[in-house]
Design a binder for these strands. Structure first.
Length: 486
RNA sequence: GGCGCCGUAGCCAAGUGGUAAGGCAGAGGACUGCAAAUCCUUUACGCGGCGGUUCGAAUCCGCCCGGCGCCUCCA
């Protein structure tokens, strides 16, 4: 078995993933704040986490995987300096999309459900636990109290703050260590005179006007953004976790603050390995609603893209590099997926014994994943394996069994498969101009038999104009909805 | 100001010291009434530029040019 190595933000090097317990990975990945639909950039991060889980499982490891949902409306300026600004969920509630919801709780529930649905559609492993911030309020309050008792936190008229000077290691993850860079990083603009140090960050905000508020030893209010992850990671995975992941923007302040809180609470290392996923760009530009290049998973699916094609497209560039997501790349992925589906059709029901060649291809695929999740190479190996089965006109029973084996492997390791919706549910037969497409196809076959090719081509053109593609096979003519943009 | 990343064929993108993976597009071919789908073959004498180290560099070092990210709600 190859050694599983990942880039570690803390040590700035590619290191083996070391588990405290042999072959048992304790893994935490920071989830989204659910104030709107998650976009494909969000999912690049969660997909990378999914690939960590699948790679570990492919090595025979057990994985305890926690990925949270932040359903508390944290503030638009809830940074290390102070929790100021607007509440993200309150703002969402006031927006046009927010009109559909009675209150922030409904809004959070709706987007959390949508998030989990998209997660499933992208064929991502369900986490062992998916804790929610609002369901761990007592634990968060307890942690804040502990930090006050141990001298790491203090109360002010506006809330409870973590004292950055009480923790030596503050800045070790992000490199924001010296006072000068730290001061710049925390933007002294939003200083609070009640704080002992400008970089001190909120653990609890006092606010009895907030739409989401809880009662605490410091009165009504809500928790700071960073404390939830510290608390939930500890509760479900223990004092020290093996690997912690998130988007690159979370390095500072979020993960830096998590480390400070957790290590101050336990006196132990919070995480032994840190993984950060680089941001996704679209057509070479930063994704932004204002640029019109902002995509959600459901949007792309609605446009006719297969969720697995989206998944495959997102694997085109390894997580450690910024990725340029393009519509062309998405269409390309759809083409690869079609070939996987073709092998799925030809494969046996039961996996057979892999031959040395296909075994070699899979070993290289897994080896690439173990080397810092090199998805570019892994996908190339997957295609190599898929092609080896398409090369033959017909597969022998042994080859069909090998094909099944390989498909099972790529499902386990890459989360890719060729099972189509039509294979499990009877497809709805569409009508064209009030006539079933199957009738049009029969008419065309009739014309072909009569050698009336002009009429046959005319029928095909009509069907294509309606957005369907025909494919003549030895078993007869099949139809398929045309992929968008092709 | 701090931290970090990237520049490889028309496009996307691996490769991090031993002589350029893979995908898309393009070209040719098989199959087809013609297509579609699928398969086969083919496409970079060169890896932003200039120096240096080395028997040997896309890969290491230096400088330069160009692009980008985070540090601000953000995955």
């Amino acid at each position: 078995m190859p050694q599983f190595r990942l880039y570690d933000t803390m040590s700035r090097s590619v290191r083996p993933v070391e588990t405290q317990e042999p072959e048992h990975l304790r893994f935490y990945c920071c989830g989204p704040t659910v104030y709107s639909y998650a976009h494909i950039g969000n999912f690049r991060t969660f997909l990378s986490a999914d690939l960590v889980v699948r790679t570990a499982e492919s090595l025979g490891w057990r994985v305890s995987y926690a990925s949270n949902i932040t359903d508390v409306g944290h503030l638009t300026e809830d940074d290390v300096a102070d929790a100021g600004g607007e509440d993200k969920m309150e703002r969402a509630l006031r927006s046009k999309e927010g009109e559909a919801f009675a209150n922030v709780w409904d809004l959070a529930r709706h987007y959390a459900d949508a998030f989990e649905e998209d997660w499933r559609l992208l064929n991502m492993r369900a986490p062992t636990v998916r804790p929610r911030a609002t369901e761990h309020m007592r634990e968060q309050i307890q942690a804040v109290e502990d930090l006050i008792k141990s001298g790491h936190a203090y109360e002010t008229p506006t809330g409870v703050y973590f004292s950055v000077e009480s923790f030596d290691g503050y800045g070790k993850l992000s490199g924001n260590k010296d006072q000068d860079t730290l001061m710049r990083a925390v933007r002294t603009v939003v200083q609070d005179d009640n704080k002992r140090h400008p970089a001190d960050f909120a653990l609890w905000k006092k606010d009895d006007k907030h739409l989401m508020q809880w009662f605490s030893p410091w009165g009504w209010g809500f928790p700071g953004w960073h404390i939830e992850c510290s608390v939930m990671a500890r509760q479900y995975l223990g004092d020290t976790i093996d690997l912690h992941a998130g988007g690159e923007d979370l390095v500072f302040p979020h993960h830096e603050c998590e480390i400070a809180q957790s290590e101050s609470c336990t006196g132990k290392a919070f995480s032994n390995h840190w993984m950060h996923v680089r941001f996704l760009q679209v057509e070479g530009e930063k994704m932004a609603k204002s640029k019109g290049n902002f995509f959600t998973v459901r949007q792309l699916i609605e446009e006719g893209h297969d969720p697995l094609a989206i998944r495959l497209a997102l694997m085109g560039t390894p997580y450690g590099k910024p990725m340029n997501f393009t519509m062309q790349g998405l269409r390309d992925a759809g083409g690869i997926l079609a070939r996987i589906q073709e092998v799925e059709r030809r494969a046996a029901k039961e996996a057979g014994t892999p031959g040395t060649e296909i075994q070699r291809i899979y070993d290289e695929l897994l080896g690439a994943m173990c080397e810092d999740l090199n998805t570019s190479v892994a996908v190339a190996k997957m295609i190599e394996g898929i092609r080896s089965f398409l090369r033959e006109d017909t597969l022998s029973a042994a080859q069909a069994g090998e094909a099944r084996w390989f498909l099972d492997r790529i499902e386990q390791t890459l989360g890719m498969h060729g099972r189509t919706v039509e294979a499990t549910a009877a497809p709805e037969v569409p009508e064209i101009n009030g006539v079933l497409i199957t009738k049009w196809i029969e008419d065309r076959a009739e014309a072909k038999r009569a050698k009336d090719f002009a009429r046959a081509d005319d029928i095909r053109k009509q069907i294509e104009a309606a957005g369907f593609e025909l494919r003549d096979t030895p078993q007869g003519t099949e139809w398929k909805r045309l992929a968008p943009g092709s």
